[in-house]
Amino acid sequence: MPFVDHLGMTVDDLPAAIVQWDPVLTALGYTRTDAHASVAWDRDGATELILFPAREPGTGPHRHGTVGWQHLAFDIATRAEVDRLHAIAVAAGWSVVREPKLYPRFNERYYASFVEDDNGIRIEFAHNPPRTTPPRGTVAGTGV
C-alpha cells in the first residue's frame, strides 16, 4: 500500500507548471493525464501528483520556510540517477537550490539535490541507500 494516495498542489500558471513538472515526472516513470482544470501524474496506479490552477491568480509563489509546504523528496536508486534527474529539472526551468552532493549531516550515504519550480514548490532527489554494515558497537543481526 502506498504511503500517500495523492498529493494536490496549487500553481499560478498551470500550462507553465506542466512545462516544468512533466519532464521530471516522466523521467521518474509517471504517466500524465490531463483533465479539464488540472493535470495529474501517477505511477503504476499508486501515488498520484495533481496540479491545480490557483483560484486567485498572482497569489504565489510559495515562500520556502513559511507555514505550509516544505519539500517533497523522491527516493532515487543511485547517485548517477540523482545527477540525471537534477539535470532534467534544470533543463525544464527549475531553479537550483542545492547542487547534487553528499549530506553527511544526515548520514554518510545521503546524496541529494534540491530544486524549486516557478511556484516556489521545492523537490529533492535523494539517494539514501540502507546501511550495509551494522553501526559500531552493535552485533550484526541483533540490533543491539
Rank of each mutant, 00 (worst) to 15 (best):
P2N: 04
G8P: 11
T10P: 11
T10I: 13
D13Y: 03
D13P: 09
I18M: 14
V19D: 14
P23Y: 03
G29K: 03
Y30K: 05
Y30A: 13
R32W: 08
D34E: 12
V39I: 12
D44M: 10
D44N: 12
A46K: 10
T47E: 01
L49K: 09
L51K: 00
A54V: 01
A54W: 02
R55W: 14
G58Q: 09
G60D: 07
P61D: 14
P61N: 07
H64C: 07
G65W: 06
T66L: 12
T66A: 14
W69H: 14
W69Y: 15
Q70S: 15
A73D: 10
F74E: 00
I76T: 04
T78R: 08
T78L: 05
E81Y: 02
V82T: 05
D83N: 01
R84E: 15
H86F: 14
A89W: 00
V90F: 09
V90D: 05
A91Y: 05
V96G: 03
V97E: 12
P100V: 04
P100F: 07
L102A: 14
P104H: 11
R105G: 07
E108N: 10
Y110D: 04
V115E: 02
D117E: 07
N119T: 09
G120H: 04
G120E: 04
I123D: 00
I123C: 06
E124D: 11
F125S: 01
H127C: 15
H127F: 09
N128G: 04
P129I: 00
P130V: 01
R136S: 15
R136M: 13
G137I: 07
T138L: 11
G141W: 09
V144N: 14
V144Y: 11
